[in-house]
Amino acid sequence: MIDDGDGVWWQPSNAELQERVSFRLDRQEKTLGSAEPKTLRFVLTEDALTGAVGSPAVMREQRLHILKLLENNDNLTVQVLRSETYGNPARGGGMTILGFGDKGSPIGFSSVVFGPSTYFDQDADTADQMRAFRRLQELALNQDDSVRLIRQIDEEG
């Protein structure tokens, strides 16, 4: 995805590409390798697993990476929302909700392809996002079925 945005959302630059990739890898390592384990829950759409991003080899690598992360991280949950599922309250958009336990109020983040992404820190806004996320969890496959689907998609190539 970063490669696809080069020269579109920012001026073409190999250094920019490398910086964006390094930032994301560092963030992933800090999140997953933290001394204080975090509970991580994700709902991915089936389209995110089958989309034409990079190349078929890149997509396969991404699916295998998700499976490996699940094998190595008990604090990680990944659920897949099937394409044919009705009632998706977040269709066409993504969201991130960061909870801090008793150390602070949750913060929500809604990303967009073009224009400003939005952070939410008001209780009413983050409560709406939490309801939407819980609904997505209800609609999505459970983790075992999600893993089976990811493997099936990978086998079908």
Rank of each mutant, 00 (worst) to 15 (best):
E16R: 09
T126S: 05
G99C: 11
S22M: 13
I153R: 01
G94C: 06
K30H: 13
L17Q: 11
S117E: 08
K103G: 14
F133T: 03
E138N: 13
D4K: 10
G87W: 02
F114S: 15
N14E: 15
T126E: 06
A90L: 07
Q122I: 01
A90D: 06
G157R: 10
L141E: 12
G104S: 06
D26Y: 08
G33H: 07
A35K: 13
I150P: 00
A48E: 05
G99I: 00
A132V: 13
N75F: 08
Q79D: 05
S55C: 02
K30L: 14
N14T: 15
L141N: 09
L141D: 09
T85E: 07
A124H: 12
S22H: 12
E155D: 15
E156M: 11
Q11G: 15
L139K: 01
T96Y: 06
L40E: 08
G93R: 10
E138M: 11
I97P: 01
G157P: 01
A132D: 13
S13N: 08
I107C: 11
G104W: 03
M59I: 01
K68S: 12
E84H: 11
E16P: 00
G101N: 04
K30G: 14
A90R: 01
P89T: 03
Q62M: 07
E61Q: 11
T85M: 07
D121I: 04
G5H: 13
N75K: 07
L70A: 04
G7T: 00
F100I: 01
S34T: 02
I150S: 00
V113D: 15
T118D: 09
L44W: 04
T50G: 02
P12E: 07
R41T: 12
D154C: 07
E138T: 13
L141Q: 07
F109T: 01
L69N: 12
E19W: 09
W9K: 15
A15H: 10
V147A: 07
G108S: 06
P56A: 04
D125P: 04
R131Y: 09
